[in-house]
Amino acid sequence: MFVGIDLGSRTVKMAVWDGERLVDHKIVESGFEPHRQAEKMVAGVKASVIIATGYGRHLAAEYFADHVITEIKAHGLGIYHQFPDCTTIVDVGGQDSKVIALNARGKVSNFQMNDKCAAGTGRFLEIMAGSLAYDLAEFGQAALKADKEVPINSMCTVFAESEVISMKNRGVPREHIARAVHASVADRLSGMLARLGYGEEIAFSGGVARNPCMVQMLQEKLPETRMIVPELPDLTGAWGAALHGANY
């Protein structure tokens, strides 16, 4: 068994690959010590090799993993495996967002990552959902239902939050604000994609790809391309790591 483990800021993901099929997978909250969490997850698996990726990859390598690869490479491998013709990836996770370009052989040819700022990340959506008293799962749905969009001007999480608060106090309906929050993230991502360049299809990976409003809005911003979302978007990195293990 080839095990890929992705230690992210919010969740730890594990994928088990037998060389042909994805035989098992798990997603667990990271908790305070993600590497311990991860170690427990892999404990029951008969692994011939464990490849770690994600923020906690080096810590995992200190404790139990055999080798590390970056999230960027892992997402590249995971998407190439599922969608061999797709050469562009947008991955939005808890801590950061990335856009990745692959060459025809599925190798990373270029990538961009958001800078220090949390705007354009899952964390940003989470903070905004919180200040609008939405559950993260219903946040995207609510935004989808909005019939109107108000602009949020600030790209900075701190300023955007105060903008949201002042909108609330002006009586702007909360779905409208929710939609505006999504629009600002979609703007960020489409800006990163425009800088990097993109193909006819863009694969959307990472936990935020589960948010239907995010996918739709990004699609609307980039009408000339087609957004595809893997069945298990948050598992992409772990799966990619497991695939790397098979060739390791």
């Binding site: 999230e71 960027i72 990373v108 040819s109 270029n110 990552m113």
Partner: peptide
């Protein structure tokens, strides 16, 4: 974050 970017660049 820089560590991730630099490692990814080296992988590339």
């Amino acid at each position: 974050q820089l560590q991730t970017r630099i490692e990814a660049f080296l992988e590339q």
